[in-house]
């Protein structure tokens, strides 16, 4: 653990935890929706891919067995990430995994054609989870607290 663990002010800590929980909530909700909607598949999203990596995402969508794996990883990935962030378990790992997922969403459909040049919701959320990975809170408030040797008490 790095030395920042005790250095948050009360308001900083609360704000970071609220951010962690709402982003986790978002991930978990989307993951559950995909899990409970049997006809959902990422193929449509990937087929719409444009930009630099479009070829790569199109070839993924074209591969039926790969699509099965992608759909599985995506919905369960979101569920794992969301749960980890909300309850604060493996929270840093969950944040980085979330960042990776958001990076993939972003690069498959970059918003260059939209009004904001390169900024979209995926990018905003991406930097928010990177921030949460760099400013961890789960060792203070969260399941990770049980496995943290240095207690703040």
């Amino acid at each position: 653990m790095n030395g920042t663990q005790n250095n948050y002010s009360r308001m900083q800590l609360i704000t970071l935890i609220v951010l962690r929980v709402i982003i986790g909530y978002h991930f978990l909700f989307l993951g559950l929706e995909k899990l409970f909607n049997p006809s959902w598949t990422a193929a449509g999203f990937l087929l719409q891919a444009n930009g630099l990596f479009a070829g790569f995402y199109h070839s993924m969508a074209a591969n039926t067995s790969a699509m099965g794996v992608i759909d599985f990883l995506n919905s369960w990935g979101q569920i794992f990430i969301g749960t980890g962030m909300i309850i604060g378990a493996f929270s840093r790992f969950a944040c980085w995994a979330g960042a990776l997922l958001l990076f993939l969403y972003y690069t498959s459909n970059p918003p260059f054609m939209g009004g904001y040049f390169f900024i979209d919701r995926n990018m905003v959320e991406f930097f928010a989870v990177v921030l949460l990975a760099l400013f961890p809170t789960s060792h203070l408030i969260g399941i990770d607290n049980f496995f943290t040797k240095t207690r703040s008490a």
């Binding site: 909530y25 978990l28 408030i141 969260g142």
Partner: peptide, 28 residues
């Protein structure tokens, strides 16, 4: 006291899971 406080800290955000489950099923 320490372990009780530690327990509370560890589980402080877990009730949110219940809220989410309720929210999800209500929506469905």
């Amino acid at each position: 006291t320490v372990s009780r406080r530690s327990l509370l800290k560890g589980l402080a955000t877990t009730p949110i899971m219940g809220v989410l489950t309720f929210d999800f099923y209500r929506k469905r």
